[in-house]
Amino acid sequence: MLHIKCPHCGLRSQNEFSYGGDATVKRPELNKEVSDKDWDNFVYLRKSPRGKHLELWQHISGCRQWIKVERDTLTHEIFKTLKANEEV
């Protein structure tokens, strides 16, 4: 069981959260020309590193806020949790 420290609610168990994927993926800017390559990058291509991974989680059975979690994908150690609008 992962224990994730929600920046709003404190330490909670994994079952209260749902996963939202790689948090480093950025949507191409709105109202600007987007090349096929940029769109492909955004929609499909993922680094999926072994080691530190910054990812989105939603505290779905808690405050329902989206948060960022920096976690090791090999050891599952959680280094840091942030509000969704915070940068590492």
Partner: peptide, 13 residues
């Protein structure tokens, strides 16, 4: 298990 992982071992939930 529902999140990126290279652990080769799972989680009980």
């Amino acid at each position: 298990d529902g999140y990126n992982s290279y652990a080769q071992r799972g989680n009980l939930p």
